[in-house]
Nucleic acid binder design. Structure first.
Lengths: 335, 335
DNA sequence: CTGAAAGCGCTAACAA
DNA sequence: TTGTTAGCGCTTTCAG
């Protein structure tokens, strides 16, 4: 016995109206007589009506859905920004389909494919990579399906609308702060992502600009914890005296901290650490990391705003929004 | 100019077949002549065909989608288990629609509503609360729509299929471990969730059973960090001498650790801490917390397996799976 | 193995 | 303000 779902027709029958009126009551309530509207809503509630999204988007060719794809929801940077975006989409009358690509190209592609199949109205995408040679194949399908995309945080080659961090400036800001606190003789180890990551390289360039006459060593890992940990560990094994580390995102910095502590050293006392992005849970464990933070709420706002404008067919002349970072240094004088 | 999407009919035209054959080529490839199949697939690839999910589920009344709803994707417990479930669903030919309820009843309800509207085939749900009086209203709609539900981790009143932790046993196991390490004169402070949380109360009962002749104080917060932090802080402000804390989930334990460190004390040296669930990032920051862990991969497997059996109409006589916890104590003798 | 006809539930475009 | 008609793209009959 398969229960049949309540449809518009059922409400129509019950109210002696036609189903189009019922449809309008939900989609364009102001195009319906208030009294009629009330009758319809009441009947719908009694029957426990639930609209059928498939039917709706099949016909109307717009789903009122925005897709969000992230490389890693467990990273608080993406976790929080996604949460904000979800809220803002809801406020604008859009539902969200959220996919985690788990830093895997295969999952990212599948997620996009899924979103196209669902006929989403637009997609906010943070790719798994910002490498200059990362050229996902799905942009063709997206263009064919006429689905606008806004890139978030991770920039890739090509003409894409996007909301980004001012990577160069962020690194420059904290670079200047570092310059004030460390002598030029002191070596600084920067751990970043791949050597061709645009995000990573912009940050490195910012540091070099601020610390042009310092002894800087750049090491390449990726934007996750493990490789950075291994890198930092081998550096510390060589020599831990008077080291200064910079992690180019929160996961990298976590890896550095892990290596420091495993080597029996105290962060910010034996070895000084700086970061781009807040370091998750560092407050819980009582370690102050001077870092560049970014207004995630603002980024979320801009991304949602941009995708909705694109959905509405607006031609955005300036299709990049750059969010400037904020230097966040501990109140206490630990560093 | 709205681009029209490629449809089955387009492929049909190109291949001089009927659209039903094209349909079968995708849905039931073995019901189609291998040669025909190849022709169809080739044409589809050339045209860049993307199936329309709306049309498919409108007609077939099955979507091949499983919905997952979590209270907090940033909590590694749910983050990891969800990741595993996503993988396993894919393997079984199901796509996943994932919603984060952000510990808000409003979002949880909205998520379920959405999933019903999408005609998902089944839902794996971890509710925002395990309070005995938490009775979400959406179970009626779910029943009406004939969508099976498997609860995960957070148990609520009613006849629901589910995959749970053996909360009582987990607490009992670590309680016994604690008993071995602390004299009966030593006071033990347990911080749990609400006084009517079934999960929390089962854990408390387990502790009481193992530590029946100890001086136990139970404090109620919730399964998030902030309240636990405040509670622990006020206890430490009173008296920090020789305290032993137990956090009833990972977020609570994080709150306890934060309070300890803020009060200038060293976890596991000045104040001893035990936990149910792994404590995220504690390894990074070099703090060993003896805890009960659970085989998340197994939980994910069981949940996915159960929902698929329910989708397939199997009558599950034993609709609860209980996963036993594993005691995880540090190798080093810190505690 | 392949096809023809019908219809899933909803909503444009028109008409009244 | 409300109703009629038609059809979105796919898949379920039932034939061939």
């Amino acid at each position: 016995m398969t229960k049949k779902r309540i449809t518009l027709a059922d409400i129509a029958k019950k109210t002696n109206l036609s189903s189009i009126t019922i449809s309008r009551a939900f989609s364009y309530p102001d195009k319906v007589n208030p009294e009629t509207l009330e009758i319809v809503l009441k009947a719908a509630a009694e029957l426990n009506y639930i609209p059928n999204r498939a039917a709706r988007s099949l016909k109307s060719h717009q789903s009122k859905i925005i897709g969000i794809v992230n490389p890693n929801m467990s990273n608080p940077f993406f976790g929080q920004i996604t949460r904000e975006m979800v809220m803002k989409c809801q406020e604008q009358g859009y539902d969200v389909l959220m996919f985690d690509s788990y830093e895997l190209a295969e999952f990212e592609t599948k997620a996009i494919q899924n979103l196209i199949e669902f006929s989403v109205d637009g997609i906010i995408l943070s790719t798994i990579s910002s490498d200059v040679d990362y050229q996902p194949t799905y942009f063709d399908s997206l263009k064919n399906s006429d689905i606008p995309v806004v890139l978030l945080d991770r920039e890739i080659e090509g003409d894409h609308a996007g909301v980004y961090i001012d990577n160069l400036d962020s690194a420059y800001q904290i670079g200047q702060y570092i310059a004030k606190r460390h002598a030029k003789t002191q070596r600084i180890d920067i751990i970043g992502a791949s050597a061709i990551s645009m995000v990573s390289n912009n940050r490195i360039a910012g540091f070099r600009a601020a610390l042009y006459d310092y002894d800087i060593a750049v090491h390449h890992a990726d934007f996750e914890m493990q490789l950075a940990y291994e890198k930092a560990k081998s550096l510390l094994d060589e020599d831990s005296y008077n080291r200064v580390f910079v992690g180019l995102n929160n996961q990298i910095t976590l890896g550095i901290i892990k290596a420091i502590i495993e080597n029996g050293l105290k962060p910010q006392i034996d070895v000084v650490v700086y970061s781009i992005d807040d370091v998750p849970y560092s407050d819980v464990f009582g370690i102050n990391i001077p870092c560049m933070t970014h207004n995630l709420s603002e980024m979320a706002f801009q991304a949602v705003n941009m995708i909705i404008r694109l959905i509405n067919g607006e031609q955005l002349n300036d299709s990049k929004v750059i969010i400037r970072g904020i230097l966040n240094t501990p109140k206490s004088g630990l560093v």
